[in-house]
Amino acid sequence: MQILIADDSVLLREGLALILAEGGHEVIGMVEDGDALVGRALASRPDLVISDIRMPPSHTDEGLQAAMRIRADWPDAPILLLSQYVVLSYATDLLSSGTGAIGYLLKDRVSDIDTFLDAVDRVAAGGMVLDPEVVAQVMRRGRRDDPVATLTPREREVLELMAEGHTNAGIAKRLFVTEGAVEKHTQRIFAKLGLSADADVHRRVAAVLTLLG
């Protein structure tokens, strides 16, 4: 697939490009700031955009803001954001910007090449991937009137794996159950979270947004 990379670190850009090339992908461009990312992404419409969240000039959330601007004009843009630290609001803002093809990984995860390339493939295919540490932090916190608290332990496991981007087949394999069982758990999760069937709503994303709170 064709991939656009955005990061102000030459070392990281080149490292990502090497990993992606070895994975059989083509890097069609590398930029180092949010404005350049928006322009290049909308002009070339790559199969995937990979961007650091913190870029010049303020090194706060320029990459995230660029992603939001891209999705304002291209709602289905497949975007994988990388971050040095877990910031839950980043994940929430990113997921709220579209219906799928979204990823948020810690930079440390890139060193696990197989996991990183798997995330690349899943996001480019229209899936959703959240770093396991993001999901773990969400599950550790306590919230009043938390709708997730109504889920059974097994349903919480399914929702956590859903948030990490696993398909029903992948969840079934990890939990040693059938895909049919996972589908039943998924439907119960949607029902308990008040997510009725709607062609205009990506319920898996909506469920994860509820988890993020």
Rank of each mutant, 00 (worst) to 15 (best):
Q84D: 12
A21Q: 14
S196N: 07
A207R: 08
R45P: 00
V205A: 08
L88Q: 12
R203E: 05
L130Q: 07
V205C: 04
D200G: 11
L4V: 11
F190D: 03
R71T: 01
L130P: 04
H59F: 15
V27A: 10
V10S: 09
T60M: 11
D118H: 00
R203H: 06
A66R: 03
L130K: 07
I5G: 07
D131A: 06
V134W: 00
D76A: 15
D145V: 08
K107I: 10
I79A: 06
T186H: 03
V148D: 01
L151S: 12
E179V: 14
L151D: 10
M128K: 03
E155P: 05
G23T: 12
I79H: 08
V201P: 02
R13D: 02
S196P: 00
E62W: 05
L212E: 08
R174W: 03
I28E: 02
R71C: 00
L42K: 07
S58Q: 13
D200A: 14
A66K: 04
L193T: 02
E14N: 14
A169M: 08
Q84R: 09
D61T: 14
L11F: 15
I113S: 06
L80E: 03
E179F: 04
L175R: 10
I5R: 06
R122N: 11
R13I: 04
M30Y: 02
Q187M: 12
S196V: 10
R13F: 01
R45T: 11
V123M: 11
V182T: 11
D146G: 13
T99E: 09
A207G: 07
S196Q: 12
R143D: 05
E133R: 13
L105S: 00
A136H: 10
G213M: 05
E164F: 04
R188V: 04
P56A: 11
T178N: 04
I113V: 15
H25P: 08
V86S: 07
R154P: 00
V27I: 10
A136G: 10
S44H: 10
A191H: 12
L80N: 02
V49T: 04
A125S: 15
G63M: 01
Q187L: 13
A91S: 12
R69T: 10
D7C: 08
R40T: 14
S196H: 08
T210F: 01
A72E: 15
V123W: 05
E164H: 04
A181Q: 13
F116M: 01
L82E: 03
V205Q: 02
Y104Q: 11
F116K: 04
G34C: 07
D52L: 01
G103N: 02
T152S: 15
L212M: 09
Q65T: 09
L193Y: 06
D108N: 09
A199E: 12
V120R: 03
I79K: 10
V31R: 06
Y85P: 00
A163W: 02
G15K: 07
E14Q: 14
F176L: 13
L48N: 04
D145I: 06
G63V: 01
L18I: 07
V49I: 11
L159F: 08
G23R: 12
V87D: 14
L88C: 05
D200W: 02
